Amino acid sequence: MFSKGQMIFGIIFFVVFAIIIGYTYRRDLKLHQKFYKGSIWMLVAFVGFIAFIAAIKFLL
């Protein structure tokens, strides 16, 4: 499906992209902890809401 060159490019691109994203996240970690404190509860509420909708769909 893909040539050998395309596969190598894709792998290198993925590795470099993951490194850059990791570095950027580490650099901004203090800002994330300051400005997004308590945002985990929004994630819990969202997942709970989706689970509630799925439960209604399967039960009714």
Score class of each variant (00 low, 15 high):
residue 35 F to Q: 07
residue 28 D to P: 00
residue 58 F to D: 08
residue 59 L to S: 11
residue 28 D to T: 13
residue 28 D to G: 04
residue 10 G to M: 13
residue 56 I to N: 13
residue 39 S to H: 05
residue 31 L to A: 15
residue 17 F to W: 08
residue 36 Y to G: 01
residue 7 M to Q: 14
residue 51 A to L: 15
residue 59 L to K: 09
residue 2 F to R: 09
residue 13 F to T: 03
residue 25 Y to K: 07
residue 25 Y to H: 06
residue 19 I to Q: 02
residue 43 L to Q: 02
residue 25 Y to V: 11
residue 41 W to S: 09
residue 43 L to M: 05
residue 56 I to V: 14
residue 58 F to T: 09
residue 20 I to D: 03
residue 27 R to P: 05
residue 48 G to D: 00
residue 40 I to H: 05
residue 15 V to E: 02
residue 25 Y to E: 03
residue 4 K to W: 15
residue 3 S to N: 13
residue 32 H to C: 08
residue 57 K to P: 03
residue 59 L to Y: 10
residue 5 G to S: 08
residue 4 K to H: 07
residue 19 I to R: 01
residue 37 K to R: 06
residue 40 I to V: 07
residue 55 A to Q: 12
residue 33 Q to A: 14
residue 39 S to C: 03
residue 46 F to H: 01
residue 29 L to Y: 12
residue 41 W to N: 12
residue 36 Y to K: 03
residue 35 F to Y: 10
residue 48 G to K: 00
residue 31 L to W: 14
residue 14 F to W: 07
residue 60 L to N: 12
residue 24 T to M: 09
residue 33 Q to H: 09
residue 5 G to L: 07
residue 45 A to K: 09
residue 41 W to K: 01
residue 5 G to Y: 04
residue 39 S to R: 03
residue 28 D to V: 04
residue 19 I to Y: 01
residue 3 S to L: 04
residue 50 I to E: 02
residue 57 K to R: 11
residue 10 G to F: 05
residue 52 F to L: 14
residue 44 V to T: 07
residue 48 G to P: 03
residue 43 L to C: 04
residue 25 Y to M: 14
residue 45 A to W: 09
residue 24 T to I: 07
residue 3 S to F: 02
residue 8 I to R: 13
residue 46 F to E: 03
residue 2 F to K: 14
residue 49 F to S: 04
residue 21 I to S: 04
residue 47 V to S: 15
residue 40 I to E: 13
residue 56 I to H: 11
residue 7 M to A: 10
residue 22 G to H: 01
residue 25 Y to L: 14
residue 24 T to C: 09
residue 32 H to T: 15
residue 3 S to V: 02
residue 33 Q to P: 05
residue 58 F to W: 09
residue 55 A to F: 03
residue 45 A to N: 10
residue 9 F to T: 10
